[in-house]
Nucleic acid binder design. Sequence first.
DNA 1: GTCTATACGCCGATAGAC
DNA 2: GTCTATCGGCGTATAGAC
Lengths: 199, 199
Amino acid sequence: MDQETDNNKKKLDSQDEILLAALKLFAEKGYFNTSLSDIAEAVGLKTTSSIYQHFKNKQTIASALYADILDSLSISIDDIRRRNKKPSEQLREIVGLLFRLTQTAPNVMTFLLVMNRHEFLPEEKPLLETAPFVKILKIIQTGIRFEEIRGTDPLQAYMYFFGIINQTLRMALAGSLAKNVEAYQSQVWMTAWNAICKK
Amino acid sequence: MDQETDNNKKKLDSQDEILLAALKLFAEKGYFNTSLSDIAEAVGLKTTSSIYQHFKNKQTIASALYADILDSLSISIDDIRRRNKKPSEQLREIVGLLFRLTQTAPNVMTFLLVMNRHEFLPEEKPLLETAPFVKILKIIQTGIRFEEIRGTDPLQAYMYFFGIINQTLRMALAGSLAKNVEAYQSQVWMTAWNAICKK
DNA sequence: GTCTATACGCCGATAGAC
DNA sequence: GTCTATCGGCGTATAGAC
């Protein structure tokens, strides 16, 4: 491995370290309650100056975080669509993914589901207009066309279905649930699916 | 009306003016994006100093706001419980109240449903442990006992029912719905109730 | 009760040495 | 790439005149 590649790798690692630390702090204390000093300290830097080597300012950290999370989510959903044919199966797997993420990467889910991003990222698109969620709406749309899902408005079906799913995940993230999130998964899925399925 | 009463009334009015302006700004821009100067300006004051006549600091404004909203909500729910016997009817009216509030007082609902209060009011109880929501859980509990609502865990029923309700209201507040909120009310109620009722 | 003036601290951000 | 040093600004909060 030549020097340039090594440098690039090192730089990417540093960036990811910062992003990871920022995500954790943002999710735990909120964007406005975490200073660049907090982030610097979390990655073992003595000053905030070094952070500016990787990011223009605090906002771009959050912005990069948002992009990364949406990207990986989008890829996962593409994968799910490829591996499953029926919209019901696709939704079932998406629910599985979200529950798993809530369990293994709660900070990611907190960033997605509980933080008010428009307060610190006013330029970014709302979640619903974002690639992965447009794909989810497409799945629902297909479900309606194939008469797996009732009604005519995909947004309304989304509202019912993910209303239940997201409320469950939010309560899990808030620590309001007695048991492990995944203990609720099958029952929550059934209830949510029942709210939108045909018959 | 004697002078003292007059003074008291004047003072209360000023406080309420500040609270109202703060609520609006908090809901629109977020707590951390609104400064005391913003609030002062909104109520026609030239400096922040005058605000300290009524509130110890910025936090106590938010705190008073939270208390006021929960109080009035609690009173409304008491009223609903008095006027209706069956849990289903009580929940039906609570849904009506929440939809109406979303329409007529969106800032109140934004403060309740979308803001992350723990970020600026870390001492305050989470919504679920709060008087009005304890009462709602009691209603659900009674519904289970009287076999109107299925299942055994009130929290889970809450999750399903208000998952759908709150997601609808949040989307309405975010401007993601095509029509007026109240246009969705009866359909949303049916779907939410169906998710928890004993068939 | 509202104002002027001011203090203080923190944070985001930059310049430049090493 | 990380550091020291430093700046400017904003926001909270206080003291005290009117």
